[in-house]
């Protein structure tokens, strides 16, 4: 079973690489280079805040775009091009297929994020000439961003298991936006009563808590990130991703491939 999932994951990764998904790294590098003259005009402390904010936001945007737009095509492209037929006519379960595709894209984003992380630290070193202990916090922020990608890929796969690519993109994007304001939604749910309160509470559980996974501002201002938050976010992401992937497998297993 693991051999088959690994093979599907590797093929997904190889497809993403050959389809030039990782070309976004070039844009990321260009962005860092382009901001260098701008940073030269301001003081070193502000420079650091700006660099961290800018580069981590870029990692987030590139990662989310890849998670949504590659994620929704993982299954739909295979159905549309019928490349799925020779796969599923072998001893491959539909659950294995979904899991393999998921791991493949997660692996692609891991490589992508790691390359960008290297870029951030190189840029930081060029600017400040040395690392401080606080710079290690950037790794936590990037780890949380990666957890966001894990959640979004699961949602994109779930939506694409029953709807068209266009609708899947729309749903996944909506969930990302709503998830980014999850803290506000939970606040609203706590204050509301009656049916709208119930509705808001239900929505606050369904929508992913992406706000908790965004600590870019805190890290750029050297604020402390508690270890408990790392543990909570890791566990939350694992549970949320497991729920979405399970739902995607259940739906996809019942789907006729026309």
């Amino acid at each position: 079973m693991t051999t088959r999932i690994r093979a599907i994951a590797f093929n997904t990764f190889r497809e993403a690489v050959r389809d030039r998904v990782l070309y976004n790294l070039v844009f990321f590098a260009l962005l860092l280079v382009a901001t260098a003259p701008l940073l030269g005009e301001i003081s070193i402390g502000v420079q650091r805040v700006l660099l961290i904010n800018l580069s981590l936001s870029a990692i987030s945007i590139f990662g989310i775009v890849i998670s949504i737009f590659v994620g929704i095509s993982l299954v739909s492209k295979e159905i549309e091009r019928r490349t799925l037929y020779p796969v599923l006519s072998r001893p491959v379960g539909r659950g294995e297929f979904i899991l393999g595709k998921y791991c493949g894209l997660a692996g692609t984003l891991l490589v992508n994020t790691m390359a960008m992380t290297t870029g951030v630290y190189v840029a930081l070193l060029l600017m400040t000439r040395s690392f401080t202990r606080a710079d290690a916090n950037i790794l936590i922020a990037i780890y949380f961003l990666f957890l966001q990608f894990i959640v979004i890929i699961g949602l994109a796969l779930l939506f694409s298991s029953f709807s068209s690519p266009l609708l899947s993109a729309l749903f996944a994007l909506s969930m990302f936006v709503a998830g980014s304001f999850a803290a506000d939604l939970r606040g609203f749910a706590a204050m509301s009563h009656g049916p709208e309160g119930l509705l808001a509470r239900a929505a606050s559980y369904v929508v992913p808590n992406l706000a908790s996974l965004n600590v870019i501002t805190r890290v750029s201002h050297d604020q402390f990130i508690p270890a408990a938050l790392v543990g909570y976010n890791t566990l939350y992401t694992l549970l949320y991703a497991t729920a979405t992937i399970t739902a995607a497998v259940l739906i996809f297993s019942r789907r006729d491939l026309k």
Binding site: N11, R14, E15, R18, Y85, P86, V87, R90, P91
Partner: peptide, 26 residues
């Protein structure tokens, strides 16, 4: 199984494709 008008992953070579399917077949 050979599907009608088969279409395969066009980023792969025949060796890579058959290796992939071979792995899936055990």
């Amino acid at each position: 199984f050979l599907p009608e008008q088969p279409y395969f992953y066009d980023h792969l070579t025949p060796i890579e494709l058959l290796d992939y399917y071979g792995t899936l077949s055990g």
